[in-house]
Amino acid sequence: MTGVIGIVVALGLLYLFASVKIVRQGYQYTIEYFGRFTTVASPGLNFFPAFFYRVGRRVNMMEQVLDIPGQEIITKDNAMVGVDGIVFFQVLDAAKAAYEVSDLYIAIMQLTTTNLRTVMGSMDLDETLSKRDEINARLLVVVDQATEAWGVKITRVEVKDIRPPGDIVNAMGRQMKAEREKRALILESEGLRASEILKAEGAKQAQILEAEGRREAAFRDAEARERAAEAEAKATQMVSDAIASGSTQAINYFVAQKYVDAVGRFADSPNAKTILFPVEATQLIGTLGGIGELAKEAIGGRRDNPPPPPAPRRGPFEGGQQ
């Protein structure tokens, strides 16, 4: 009797252990009642009577990565390229992922491969090489819509590598080289053009400045001649006033001044070894005497009335030959 009780207790413990279901974190188990889906077991300790309930599918609920194998695709301009990629997805509904599709991984791979051919087949070779972001976005939208019924969320689709044929790669290399040489020639031509423009602008500015300098110099020369003419006119006016007042000594003074300046110029000449005077010495002496008389009168008259300011002195032989 004791042995029978022990056997019953042992069988009860075995049944109890068989009914306990422990689900790991990141997974969900589908529970079937005589082969029919009833519920989903969440992570942790779950109890379902054995022989009546059993675990149907163990579904990974974490985000997963599926590698898309390389394949040959013909582009819109009939270029054969090799392409491979990866797909990131996550199961959101364990029941749908377990019972709505036979093999989830193969289904996602085949669906991505087919749509990759469709998307890249509608593009030229240059577009496939330069618009990877557009290819990824279009694939993501199409594949995500198709897998929504399976309880799967496609989080990301990436094209890893695009391999054009060898002859096309060589042609693209030659094209790139020609394009860069073209840019170099254009930049060099633009540099030469800019240099010539700057040189022309500099020459133009130099000519303008030179012309302005000549104009300023001519203006200053004219102003100097005008002032010299005003001074000469003023001196002539003073001499005329002196003559009109009956002062002959003023005439003698200016004549003597002209003679002395002219003789000084002959004497200052570096090549003057012999000087010939066109006037007699007695005339010069008489003129000097007149200067002396004028000086005496000027000293005597200064005591009574101060003399008027002297006329500005002019250069030799100005106003004609004496």
Rank of each mutant, 00 (worst) to 15 (best):
residue 129 L to F: 00
residue 130 S to H: 08
residue 132 R to K: 15
residue 133 D to W: 00
residue 133 D to H: 03
residue 133 D to Q: 13
residue 134 E to M: 04
residue 135 I to E: 10
residue 135 I to V: 15
residue 136 N to C: 08
residue 136 N to L: 03
residue 137 A to Q: 15
residue 137 A to E: 15
residue 139 L to D: 05
residue 140 L to N: 09
residue 140 L to F: 01
residue 140 L to D: 02
residue 141 V to L: 11
residue 142 V to R: 14
residue 142 V to F: 08
residue 142 V to A: 14
residue 143 V to P: 02
residue 143 V to F: 01
residue 144 D to V: 04
residue 145 Q to W: 02
residue 145 Q to C: 03
residue 146 A to H: 05
residue 146 A to N: 12
residue 147 T to M: 15
residue 148 E to T: 06
residue 148 E to L: 07
residue 149 A to L: 11
residue 149 A to C: 04
residue 150 W to C: 02
residue 150 W to D: 02
residue 150 W to M: 09
residue 150 W to E: 02
residue 150 W to P: 02
residue 151 G to P: 02
residue 152 V to C: 02
residue 152 V to Y: 05
residue 153 K to C: 04
residue 154 I to K: 01
residue 157 V to T: 13
residue 158 E to V: 08
residue 158 E to R: 07
residue 158 E to Q: 13
residue 158 E to H: 08
residue 159 V to I: 15
residue 159 V to L: 03
residue 160 K to Q: 12
residue 161 D to A: 09
residue 161 D to P: 01
residue 161 D to R: 15
residue 162 I to G: 05
residue 162 I to Y: 03
residue 163 R to H: 10
residue 163 R to A: 14
residue 163 R to L: 11
residue 164 P to Q: 10
residue 164 P to W: 06
residue 165 P to E: 07
residue 165 P to D: 11
residue 165 P to Q: 08
residue 165 P to A: 07
residue 166 G to F: 10
residue 167 D to P: 05
residue 167 D to N: 12
residue 167 D to K: 10
residue 169 V to R: 14
residue 169 V to M: 13
residue 169 V to G: 04
residue 170 N to W: 05
residue 170 N to G: 05
residue 170 N to A: 14
residue 172 M to A: 13
residue 173 G to P: 00
residue 173 G to M: 07
residue 174 R to E: 12
residue 174 R to K: 12
residue 175 Q to R: 14
residue 175 Q to K: 14
residue 175 Q to H: 09
residue 176 M to A: 14
residue 176 M to L: 11
residue 176 M to I: 06
residue 178 A to C: 03
residue 178 A to I: 06
residue 178 A to T: 06
residue 178 A to L: 10
residue 179 E to A: 15
residue 179 E to W: 00
residue 180 R to S: 11
residue 181 E to Y: 12
residue 181 E to M: 14
residue 183 R to L: 11
residue 183 R to H: 09
residue 183 R to E: 13
residue 185 L to A: 13
residue 186 I to K: 00
residue 186 I to L: 07
residue 187 L to E: 10
residue 187 L to S: 10
residue 187 L to D: 11
residue 187 L to Y: 00
residue 187 L to W: 00
residue 189 S to M: 09
residue 189 S to L: 05
residue 189 S to Q: 15
residue 190 E to Y: 08
residue 190 E to F: 01
residue 190 E to V: 02
residue 191 G to R: 15
residue 191 G to S: 12
residue 191 G to H: 10
residue 191 G to L: 08
residue 193 R to Q: 10
residue 193 R to A: 01
residue 194 A to C: 03
residue 194 A to G: 01
residue 195 S to Q: 12
residue 197 I to S: 11
residue 198 L to D: 10
residue 198 L to M: 08
residue 198 L to C: 02
residue 198 L to R: 14
residue 199 K to F: 04
residue 199 K to Y: 04
residue 199 K to Q: 12
residue 199 K to R: 12
residue 200 A to D: 12
residue 201 E to T: 00
residue 202 G to R: 15
